[in-house]
Amino acid sequence: MIGIIDYGLGNLTSVLGAVTKVGFDGVISSDPGELADCEKLILPGVGAFPEGMANLNDRGLVDVLDDQVRQRRVPILGICLGFQLLGNNSTEFGETDGLGWIDAPVTVLTPDDAALRVPHVGWNEVLQASDCVLFDGIDDGALFYFVHTYKMELPSGGVAVGTCDYGGRFTAAVQNGNVFGTQFHPEKSQQCGLALLRNFLEKT
């Protein structure tokens, strides 16, 4: 069972729809017991960082996630805000600590070209920076759908397996062992997004 973590925010229905579409059984859940039994986890996006962390804490989900991801090495995919929550901390609406599984801060997107509007909304190319199973069979430079105001910025390569340019390069996808994350929305990126999701569900 694929556990889609319900922390009161996010487009959970869309994520479940995409998981179903690629042939897997998913469950939207905020029940620590149920999530503890899942063989894979997805931490969806859409939300503000402080509210996201507060909700994870209030629902007692941080402990079960820590146990599943760090002790039992269950693969997890963070999407958009869920990806940012994997980081050390964020400056969105003040300073808030994240889960800390990806060693990077989350900061506001500041394109070096004033003509580029923020939030960064729409389809943009993802360059594959190092080998990652998520991108199996997906063209380098394929378009994915982004919608975000904050970003993570890691050195390209290594943990940062994908990058994107929007008035400066930022991290579009990460892998640190069993911890995966994408700044873009695979559940909303048509064929390429569904292919990436299938890779996560089949190959990790």
Partner: peptide, 27 residues
């Protein structure tokens, strides 16, 4: 069957309305 972003609206007055719109599949 919609795997592109879906914005939903019409008559939204409260956070409860927003939660409903997100729950039925809005991004």
């Amino acid at each position: 069957e919609c795997f592109v972003p879906l914005a939903v609206g019409g008559g939204i007055r409260s956070m409860e309305d927003v939660r409903q719109m997100m729950a039925v599949g809005g991004d």
